[in-house]
């Protein structure tokens, strides 16, 4: 099985991409920035901001952070709890 990460989408971002979960390939040195660039190629991704918030394995991450096989990457719309 090839190396991949699970990408989770929520709320307005899930509506934009038409799905709440994707599996995306990762390799040695793949970063959050690389995954976002690949995500931007998908239909509907033009409705996402250029630099959305991202969490890796349920913690907020930076665009330079590495993504490894099996990681859970969440693309997080502006939060609106309360």
């Amino acid at each position: 099985m090839s190396a991949s990460a699970t990408v989770l989408l929520f709320a307005a971002y899930a509506d934009a991409l038409g799905t709440s979960q994707l599996t995306m390939p990762v390799g040695d040195g793949t970063t959050v920035r690389d995954l976002l660039a690949a995500l931007a190629q998908r239909p509907g991704a033009d409705r996402l901001p250029p630099s959305p918030l991202v969490a890796v394995n349920r913690r907020y991450a930076s665009v330079g952070d590495l993504v490894r096989s099996g990681d859970e990457v969440a693309v997080i719309p502006p939060v609106a709890g309360g």
Partner: peptide, 18 residues
């Protein structure tokens, strides 16, 4: 990471972007 979608009197719905 919590989001809310409002339902309006005119029948439309929209995610709140704070």
């Amino acid at each position: 990471p919590i989001w809310k979608r409002e339902h309006y009197a005119d029948g439309t719905r929209q995610w709140v972007d704070p």
